[in-house]
Design a binder for these strands. Structure first.
Lengths: 142, 142
DNA sequence: TTGCGAAGTGGGACAAAGTGGGATAAAATA
DNA sequence: TATTTTATCCCACTTTGTCCCACTTCGCAA
């Protein structure tokens, strides 16, 4: 699979359609999974296998504990309920449902952010605010 | 079989009919099995094979204990008594009996939740309450 | 600069999905 | 049997999504 990187500022049209950067389009298949990020601040877009792998990875941290506990069953159910399969149209756009747009507060101006195995869709202003909170300088201090 | 995911808000009409999301309809046959969830908080909808597999799976956890014990016989009997076969009508809707509607406290506003091999039917408010109790943040703590 | 193709955007026309309700047939009650 | 009730079938309305085409912008090359 791909290695998605970069930030792209695109527009969501009146019908909720979002055209992907051509780099993303080349790296991904036409079948994608869109889900609300766990904290609800943006949307994640995966390929189907990537989504499954991501969910699984969330449950492997507790040292191999299998998903039998009722807490994990509920978490898994919620994660699965929030994902929606979508297909790209003939112009390479994906339709984002009204409920998902609302959940991530997406307006017209959005930012697509590559993050290795998936990309994220942010409201432009929200993304700018997020960037402002990240302190890169501390990486270079001694 | 299918891989049912996603959350869909639909309405139960005055006759107790429920239209399925087209994604579910594509993934399932017209013959379905509706049963009250063990805890009674919603309905489960399976394909016939899926229902059988689910019941069987419930009895495999006790470390290979076969269903010979009278307790298991009774449990199996009860589970089978609570399931009702239904067929989709020509518009892709399934009729939910009055008794099952009551059991799961289904009113007009319901939520269909995909969960891999089956989907669940929740009263909308009840589902929202359930979601609110699930803590996803703990999956991301270290 | 001009021409060309690819990328991003917008919108109209049509089809499908979800919903509601009336008419008819089957079942239940008296 | 007559009457009420329940369920099934069919049609219709409204909304949403899909498909297709067109316009614009940008970059690259002749």
């Amino acid at each position: 699979m791909a290695d998605l990187v970069g930030e792209y500022r695109h527009k969501l049209d009146a019908k909720g359609r979002l055209s992907l950067p051509s780099d993303f389009r080349k790296a991904l298949s036409k079948h994608l999974m869109v889900t609300i990020s766990p904290k609800g601040e943006c949307l994640y877009v995966f390929e189907p296998e990537g989504f499954s792998a991501w969910v699984s990875s969330l449950f492997e941290k507790d040292g191999g504990f299998k998903s039998s506990s009722s807490k994990h069953v509920a978490q898994r159910k919620l994660l699965n309920s929030r994902v929606k399969p979508v297909e790209l149209d003939n112009s390479g756009r994906l339709g984002i449902s009204a409920s998902q747009r609302e959940a991530a507060l997406l307006d017209k101006e959005v930012v697509l952010v590559g993050d290795t195995d998936h990309f994220e869709v942010w409201d432009a202003k929200r993304w700018d605010d997020f960037c402002a909170t990240v302190d890169l300088d501390s990486l270079f201090e001694d």
